[in-house]
Design a protein around this nucleic acid. Structure first.
Lengths: 202, 202
DNA sequence: ACCTGAACACCGTTCAAGT
DNA sequence: ACCTGAACACCGTTCAAGT
C-alpha cells in the first residue's frame, strides 16, 4: 500500500494516543513501543513520526490526558465538601485513590525525563500545576485575608507532601500495606500541617 | 583471550559498580548500558552476568551505595543540632541539598521499577527506611512519652512529604526556581507540620 | 573454571522509494 | 502528499566455544 488517507492527521493522532493509553494502562510504560502502537492502529512505525516528534512526545501527550482526568476527579471530590479542612483531607485521599486506580498511567506521569536536564514543555508544567488548583482554592477559603504569595507556597508544599507519600507508597518504599494506611499517612500530614498553618499567620 | 582470573569475583563486582556509578553520575541512567560498563572495566558483557543477575540488579546495587552516602550525610547533619525541631528542618534541607548535589544518582534511586508490580528486594527497602531513621529519632526526642506506633507514622508522613517536594522540584513540576525556594518549601512543610503535631497528642 | 564474542530478539528513528 | 518498510545504530541477555 502507501497513500491511504483513510484518516486525517488528527484522527491518526487520537487513534495512536488511544492505543498507547491502553498499552500503558494494561502493561506499564515498558510495553509502550512504537512498533506496538503502530500495529495497534494499522499503520507502520514511520507514520507515527509524521504525527509526533518522538516517543517521549507521544508519552507526554498520554500523560496530559491522565492529568486532565485527575483534575476532573479532584474537582468532583472538592465539590462534595464545603468545609476547607475536611475538603483538603478528602482531596489527598482522592489523589491516592486515583493513583491506586490507575497505577501504570499515574507512574508514567512522574517517570523522570532521561535526556540530560531536559526541561518539560511549558504546556505540560501548566497541566501539572492545574491539578494543584483545587487545594489552593481551599487554602484561600480558609484565609481569604492572606495574599497569594503566602497561599500558593503553603498549598503547594502540602500537596507535594501528599504526592511524596503517594509515590513512596506506590513504589514499595514506604513500609505500608494497603491503601488504607496510605490514606492514613496522608490524613496525618494534612491534619497536622493545617493545624499548624491555621494557628499562625505564616 | 579467555581464562584470565586477573580479578576475583568480588573485585569485578566492585570495579563494575565503580564504573556504573561514574556513568550515571556524569550522564544519567540512560547512559548505563551493559556494554559501556564492560568496556569501562576491560571485560566483555558476558562477564557482568556472572556477577549480577541483570542490569536492574546492578542498578539497585549502585542505588544501595547512594543511599548509604545519603544516610551518612543526614547523620552528620543531625549531629550538628540538638534542638529537635530545628534539627528536622535542617535534615529536610540536607536531603534537598543531597539531591541537588547528586542529581542523576538520586534520580536513579526513585526511578520506578518497570516490571509489572515487581516488589523491591527486602534489603533494598530496609536501606530506604534506614534513611528515615534520623528523623524518627528527632520525633522520639520531642515526645518520648509517645509509643512507636504514633512516632513512626508521623515521622514517615513528614519525611515522605519532604521527599515529594524534592522530587517535584527536581523534575521541574513545581513552579520554583533555585534550590533556595525548594528549601523554603521544605521549611514550610516541616514547620507547620511540627507546630500542628506538637500541639496535639496525635 | 573463567571468559569470550557472536547471536537472538528486540529497541527508536530515519528516509529513499513506491503509489 | 501520504505512507511504507527496510536500514541503521543501538539495546539486554544467553550460551556454545575457546583456553
Amino acid at each position: 500500500m502507501a497513500r491511504r488517507s483513510d484518516h486525517s492527521r488528527e484522527e491518526i493522532r487520537q487513534m495512536a494516543l488511544d492505543a498507547a493509553e491502553k498499552l500503558v494502562a494494561e502493561n506499564g510504560r515498558s510495553f509502550l513501543t512504537a512498533r506496538r502502537i503502530a500495529s495497534g492502529i494499522g499503520y507502520t512505525v514511520g507514520s507515527l513520526y509524521l504525527v509526533f516528534d518522538n516517543l517521549d512526545d507521544l508519552a507526554l501527550q498520554v500523560n496530559a490526558r491522565t492529568l486532565d482526568r485527575l483534575s476532573l476527579q479532584l474537582d468532583q471530590t472538592a465539590s462534595q465538601y464545603q468545609e476547607p479542612r475536611r475538603c483538603i483531607v478528602e482531596l489527598g485521599r482522592s489523589y491516592i485513590r486515583f493513583a491506586a486506580d490507575n497505577p501504570h498511567l499515574w507512574n508514567m506521569i512522574f517517570e523522570i525525563r532521561t535526556a540530560d536536564e531536559m526541561r518539560l514543555p511549558e504546556w505540560y508544567q501548566r497541566r501539572v500545576l492545574e491539578s494543584f488548583r483545587g487545594v489552593e482554592r481551599q487554602f484561600e477559603k480558609m484565609r481569604p485575608d492572606l495574599p497569594e504569595a503566602l497561599i500558593k507556597p503553603a498549598a503547594r508544599a502540602l500537596w507535594s507532601g501528599v504526592h511524596g507519600i503517594c509515590i513512596l507508597a506506590r513504589t514499595g518504599k514506604l513500609d505500608v500495606a494497603g491503601i488504607e494506611s496510605v490514606e492514613r499517612a496522608s490524613d496525618l500530614l494534612c491534619e497536622n500541617f493545617l493545624d499548624g498553618w491555621i494557628g499562625s499567620a505564616r
